[in-house]
């Protein structure tokens, strides 16, 4: 018997497919999320919209909060660490969280290196904006990739751009001859063996979810139709007028993402969505998706 094998790490990511992972800041939120049909919750102290508004250094959450959330729900619990902060990851592993998100939403701790994720028993999810970044993270041991979007904006445009970019770059790799793959790896700044895998299989070697900017059931279904295998929703639920109703509607939208009749019915009368931000109104330095190397 082997615990924490690569297959069990990817296995959990496989089980989360076709589902919604919701950001929660209290045990009460976590219970609302579970009752709405979330497949997992992301435990954090502030949702991205508040991190953006309040500023300051954003760090791993208080272990007490994470433990409260873990004991409040039966679904998997994820939590975030700063990019490169492997000690925060050691702490989360000790708490027994089910997935660690090495996240650009928190303030990076290392401007050159990400965490060497093979050192950990807990699987990691990491963000990407393009194929090269996705493959570098997988090369470091990430068992799940998500496009970053632009967290805390309620604006889906970056998530769409990034997922389309990853898909386009995958298709481009598939058209190459074997003799062209080393040059492609050089251009993508990605490990050669992973470039070879994508060339051969036409997909990432780990599941690929979407995050950042989902505010409506239609946003969630859009990402699924574009090829995301699940959807993370951050500020979009608990910063809206009726979190429970919106959470349920987004869950239905991810299951029935190809069924416009269901999408129409669940989109009805959801109350106020979170207030969105236009991406070009964000100062370059405040862009979270630019974090990660």
């Amino acid at each position: 018997m082997q615990k924490s094998a690569w297959e069990t790490k990817i296995g959990l990511a496989e089980m989360l497919k076709g589902g919604v992972i919701m950001d929660v800041v209290t045990a009460e939120h976590a219970i609302i999320a579970e009752k709405a049909g979330a497949v997992a919750v992301m435990a954090l102290e502030r949702v991205p919209a508040d991190i953006r508004k309040q500023g300051g250094v954003a760090r791993m959450s208080d272990p007490k909060l994470i433990k409260e959330i873990m004991s409040a729900v039966s679904i998997p619990v994820m939590a975030k660490v700063r990019i490169g902060h492997f000690v925060e990851a050691q702490i989360l592993e000790n708490l027994g969280v089910d997935f660690i998100d090495e996240s650009e939403v928190l303030t990076p701790a290392d401007e050159e290196n990400h965490i060497y994720k093979y050192d950990f028993k807990v699987p990691f999810v990491c963000g990407c904006r393009n194929l090269g970044e996705a493959l570098r993270r997988i090369g470091e041991g990430a068992a799940l990739i998500r496009t970053k979007g632009e967290a805390g904006t309620g604006n889906i445009v970056e998530a769409v751009r990034q997922l389309r970019t990853v898909n386009k770059e995958i298709r481009a790799l598939q058209t190459l001859e074997k003799s062209e793959l080393m040059a492609a790896a050089k251009n993508l700044q990605a490990p050669y063996d992973l470039v070879e895998y994508v060339h051969e299989h036409g997909k990432l070697p780990v599941p690929n979810f979407s995050a950042g900017g989902v505010a409506t059931p239609a946003d969630a279904a859009l990402m699924m139709q574009l090829g995301a295998e699940s959807v993370f929703v951050g500020s979009g639920i608990f910063k809206s007028g009726n979190p429970q109703k919106r959470a349920e509607a987004i869950v239905s939208a991810v299951t029935y993402y190809k069924d416009p009749a269901v999408l129409a019915s669940v989109s009805e009368n959801l109350g106020e969505p979170m207030t969105g931000i236009e991406i070009d109104k964000i100062l370059e330095n405040d862009r979270m998706d630019k974090r990660g190397w």
């Binding site: 039966s74 998997p76 299951t255």
Partner: peptide, 13 residues
């Protein structure tokens, strides 16, 4: 997958 999520969605729809 998650049995709770499946039950909720199946009942709702």
């Amino acid at each position: 997958g998650e049995s709770t999520a499946m039950i909720i969605i199946l009942k709702k729809h």
